[in-house]
Amino acid sequence: MLELAHLTAGYPGRPPVLRDACLTIAPGEAVGLQGPSGCGKSTLARVAALLHRPDHGTVTVDGHRVHGWRHRAPRSLRTRIGVVFQQPRQSADPRLTLADVIAEPLRANGRRAEVPDRLPELSRSVGLTDELLTRRPHEVSDGQLQRACLARALALEPRWLVCDEMTSMLDASTTAALVGAVESYRTRTGAGLLAVSHDDELLTRWCDRTVTLAAGAAGSAGAAGSAKDLDTWTS
């Protein structure tokens, strides 16, 4: 289970963007998170990926209560969660080739020896050709780069995937390909998914259930199991 309980989170010097939000994702479940701009969707996703320390509330990953965030989170815990961000340009180091981008998590975890086997497998699973792997981020399109970012997130076979607006910069066919790649990975491994988007239709088709986060104040992404009515949140 990936459990986010009573989260209040924000950024220094501003009122919190997220107040008392709760969300529980079961293994194998796909949860969509939507809401207007600035309502804290991405902040919630960053907290779930252990990249942002909430002011209050708890995060529990597979029964392990999280006490540290970013580097302070134990490596075994933070590598359980794969993340894909909205902007591929910002998410890949401009100095590395796509092959290095994808292989980075393996190398960072002392699994360098697996790279020759896993790299072709990973790039094939997201639909990248070998020729693209030798290029640097500025030499490929946004869609190709986002595929590489997804492959990087899948490299360590995480039990949970957090996709923060993964497809909002991309065209329809690339969106379909990426969602397809995520889904085939989930079918194979039974990983849970938190997909953040403002695209209602995409989330409805993609996810088992969708929860809505209201703008600003007292938003609480519906408790496990049921998405609450949008109207009750927009007062």
């Binding site: 960053r46 252990l50 490596r75 961000f85 998410s91 980075e104």
Partner: peptide, 20 residues
């Protein structure tokens, strides 16, 4: 930057992120 966050999420140590 997101690429640093992605590296953290991928299990990179502080040292590795600094050097790489």
């Amino acid at each position: 930057r997101p690429y640093v966050e992605a590296a953290i999420s991928g299990g990179s140590t502080r040292w590795r992120i600094a050097v790489r």
